[in-house]
């Protein structure tokens, strides 16, 4: 499939469907994006598992670090890979050895490996690249609107007051059909330059 842009429905179905998320490259350093993405997803009710061999023996927000995906010992719905583009493939290979297989491979904002995506899709997994699940959850729920971000969704329903641990509805009306034309152009500009 085309990974330059995703429809809101595609992202919404993933975020509504998954319950357990293993984050490869989760950091205990509280100013790293992986730390606060992990924290946000945990606060929105996902069962989060931090994966980082450098921090085994420690825990992240009460969840013990594991060294690798193969040491988790229970089914995982989604692997969120917080690594550079060049380090995606080893993490994916490990994910493909898991039983049962995870349903979704998610590569963080800035990370993209088309060969890894093709391999995961060939194994029947869904793939998202170069996106942040925290941003996408915040966008589809409109929680991110507090920062003036265009959620590209509308709703005439009274919004709930978000409290700790609460799942938010992602089923608002989409207005952008996924990415904006400008984002498509940005992706195109980038590929023209490389």
């Amino acid at each position: 499939m085309n990974h330059d842009s995703y429809s809101d429905d595609y992202i919404r179905e993933i975020l509504n469907g998954v319950k357990t998320i293993a984050m490869v490259g989760a950091s205990p350093v509280n100013v790293r994006p992986s730390y606060f993405a992990f924290k946000y997803l945990a606060q929105r009710g996902y069962d989060m598992i931090p994966v980082n061999p450098g921090h085994v023996g420690k825990s992240l927000l009460g969840k013990p670090f594991v060294a690798s995906l193969l040491e988790i010992g229970r089914p995982v719905d989604m692997i969120d890979i917080f690594r550079n583009s060049s380090n995606i493939m080893p993490a994916l290979d490990e994910a493909l050895k898991m039983t049962p297989l995870p349903k979704v491979i998610w590569m963080q904002l800035g990370a993209r490996d088309d060969a890894a995506a093709a391999k995961a899709e060939a194994a029947g997994l869904k793939v998202v690249m170069n996106r942040c699940p925290k941003i996408e959850y915040g966008r589809l729920s409109s929680e991110i609107s507090w920062m003036g971000v265009n959620s590209r969704t509308l709703s005439s329903k009274r919004a709930p007051i978000p409290t700790l641990g609460m799942r938010l509805s992602l089923n608002r009306m989409s207005v952008g059909g996924g990415e904006t034309t400008a984002s498509d152009r940005a992706a195109k500009n980038k590929s023209e330059l490389t």
Binding site: S7, D8, D9, S142, S145, N150, S151, L154, S155, S156, K157, R158, A159, P160, I161, M173, S174, V175, G176, G177, G178
Partner: peptide, 20 residues
């Protein structure tokens, strides 16, 4: 289905939702 509302719909609705 994702659909694209028109400009006038966005001018009235985008960003606004009944107060929580």
């Amino acid at each position: 289905n994702d659909r694209l509302p028109g400009f006038s719909t966005l001018a009235v609705h985008a960003g606004a939702q009944p107060d929580p």
